[in-house]
Simulated assay, not measured.
Amino acid sequence: MTERLQKLLSQAGIASRREAETLIVAGRVTINGQVVTELGTKADPATDQIAVDGKPVRPVDAKIYLLLYKPVGYLTTLKDPEGRPIVTDLLKDIATRVYPVGRLDYNTEGLLLLTNDGEWANRLAHPRHEIEKEYLVRVRGKATPDQIKRLAAGVGLEEGRTAPAKVFLSGESDNNSWLSVTIHEGRNRQVRRMCEAVSLAVVRLKRIRYGFLELGDLKPGEYRHLAPAEVERLVHPGRPRPAGGPGQKDRRR
């Protein structure tokens, strides 16, 4: 079935639709070896050979949406020149190529979404959605009310001030404090850098919620498929809650 070229590029995870339009107009996209620059151009991914900068665009398989409990010690990239473990190593029974929606750094654990639906991933990443991400943060020592207040108000980072966050003390011991930090931005290593900016040293960082999705009883390295209603609700949060509970869990590692 033919589709607009920018939609096909977005679905394949090459770029957002707007970015794909820029690629087309710049003459960087070919269909069957011919450069196309018209935005209304259509193609059939089953029969046409589409390429960007000479690199073939792989047809998208059946859509897959996964919720993974990422363990510490895995990278959210598709390959690593140093040979370190990557999150897709955990998906033993998923033959289709999927990629992470956003990132969690090497030493951060918790909820990570993966998909082969580039358009869906791009919609989630768009700033207008302001999807909340909640983290449980263990910091060294006692977090003071002033530090918590500063985190909640937004702190200055190298690239600019962070948006206000939801921050509260969720527990403490003699040596550590546990904070709940909820943000809707997606800057690189944002929560760690926010804590550093108010002189808090992060000992452990775990993402426990993405929008309405939670880890549930998943253990590190386990994952489940999202239910269709969950997939839809993430990009249309105002719609009714999905019926029937979460998608199927897979405990393979």
Rank of each mutant, 00 (worst) to 15 (best):
E3P: 15
E3M: 12
L9K: 08
Q11V: 08
A15D: 09
S16L: 05
A26Y: 04
A26L: 03
A26T: 07
G27Q: 10
V29M: 04
N32G: 07
G33I: 05
Q34V: 14
V36N: 14
T37R: 15
E38N: 05
G40I: 00
A43N: 09
P45H: 01
I50V: 12
I50P: 13
V52E: 00
G54K: 10
G54D: 06
P56W: 01
V60D: 10
V60H: 12
D61C: 08
A62K: 15
P71V: 08
G73Q: 13
Y74M: 10
T76W: 04
T77S: 12
T77K: 02
G83Y: 00
V87Q: 12
T88L: 07
D89C: 02
L91M: 13
T96N: 11
V98E: 02
Y99D: 05
P100N: 03
P100Q: 11
V101F: 06
V101A: 02
D105A: 07
E109A: 12
E109W: 12
G110A: 07
L111F: 04
L113C: 08
T115D: 03
N116E: 07
G118P: 15
E119H: 11
A121T: 00
N122I: 06
R123D: 09
L124H: 05
R128W: 08
R128F: 06
E130L: 04
E130V: 08
I131P: 14
I131V: 03
E134W: 10
V137R: 14
R138A: 00
K142S: 11
T144W: 11
P145G: 00
Q147I: 02
R150L: 13
L151N: 03
L151R: 03
A152Y: 13
A152H: 04
A152I: 03
G154T: 00
E158M: 07
E159Q: 02
G160D: 00
R161H: 01
T162R: 04
K166R: 15
F168E: 11
L169K: 15
L169F: 09
S170N: 10
S170V: 10
S173V: 09
N175L: 14
N175S: 14
S177G: 12
W178S: 12
W178F: 13
L179M: 05
S180E: 11
S180I: 06
I183Q: 10
I183L: 03
H184Y: 05
E185Y: 08
E185V: 00
E185N: 11
Q190H: 06
R193L: 09
E196T: 05
A197E: 08
A197C: 05
L213R: 15
L215C: 03
L215G: 14
G216D: 07
D217T: 14
D217W: 10
L218N: 14
L218Y: 14
E222T: 05
Y223W: 13
L226Y: 09
A227P: 14
A229T: 03
E232D: 13
L234S: 04
H236L: 00
H236W: 11
G238W: 09
R239C: 01
P242C: 02
A243E: 15
P246Q: 01
Q248S: 14
D250G: 06
R253H: 13
